[in-house]
């Protein structure tokens, strides 16, 4: 069984690598198998949620919500997609609800989470580079905040490397809708990014 080194100090097991028989047992209620499925998916869930919501606050709660939904939803999962796509779909639903709730509360802070996010990168002696990266992340998140929740979700999933078909499955949308969402999200994101561009850029 292969694994990929992903987060600093952690070995990530991709959800696809949870053996099918373990998933079957978990769906049937086997406690050890359920634990194995959550072991195999928890880091994936954490990373995906973080990318989708773009902040650390509430991450633990959302992660736990998704893990719980995995366990309760497994008996109903029809195995029509990869485990990662199904789990990703749960992450998408949970994060969309969260983002919509946050949007209605009109609260969004980016500087502090961006700081924390970059602390999780490998240590670097390039202080100026770190500062630039932090500023870039702040700009990107600010641009993402200007997108609708659907556009934002599709766009982020695409940057995570998911195909249009996978994004369509995860978001429960038609592929044509997803393609158009991606197209308009790219346009909106580019516009928003340009609006926050530093004046000195390109000078």
């Amino acid at each position: 069984m292969s694994s990929t080194r992903d987060l600093p100090g952690q070995v990530v097991l991709a959800p696809e690598q949870v053996p099918a028989e373990v998933v079957e047992k978990a769906a049937a209620g086997d406690r050890a198998a359920q634990e194995a499925v959550l072991e195999g998916t928890s880091t994936f869930v954490r990373r995906m949620l973080y990318k989708l919501i773009g902040r650390v606050d509430d991450l633990e709660d959302l992660q736990q919500t998704v893990l719980m939904r995995i366990v309760t939803g497994l008996p109903r999962w029809r195995r029509e997609s990869a485990l990662s796509t199904w789990v990703g779909g749960i992450c998408v639903n949970v994060s969309r609800d969260y983002l919509r709730q946050r949007r209605t509360r009109s609260v969004e802070l980016d500087g502090e989470p961006a700081e924390r996010a970059l602390q999780n990168r490998p240590a670097s002696s390039d202080l100026q580079g770190e500062a630039e990266a932090r500023e870039e992340l702040r700009r990107c998140r600010s641009a993402l905040d200007r997108l609708s929740v659907n556009h934002r979700t599709a766009f982020v999933l695409k940057t995570l490397g998911h195909s249009v078909e996978e994004i369509a499955q995860m978001t429960g949308s038609a592929t044509s809708t997803t393609r158009l969402r991606l197209y308009y999200a790219r346009k909106a994101f580019t516009r928003a990014l340009a609006a926050t561009a530093p004046q000195a850029e390109g000078a």
């Binding site: 987060l7 600093p8 100090g9 952690q10 634990e35 959550l38 072991e39 928890s42 880091t43 954490r46 990373r47 949620l49 973080y50 990318k51 773009g54 650390v56 991450l59 633990e60 992660q63 736990q64 893990l67 961006a114 924390r116 996010a117 970059l118 602390q119 999780n120 990168r121 990266a133 870039e136 992340l137 700009r139 990107c140 641009a143 982020v156 940057t159 995570l160 990014l193």
Partner: peptide, 22 residues
């Protein structure tokens, strides 16, 4: 910008914390 988005990672979870959460 793409690097910044892709490179941002959540705080690593301790093994204990992860097990407790599961």
């Amino acid at each position: 910008a793409a690097d910044a988005l892709c490179g941002a990672e959540p705080p690593a979870q301790s093994e204990d914390g992860r097990r407790r959460q599961i």
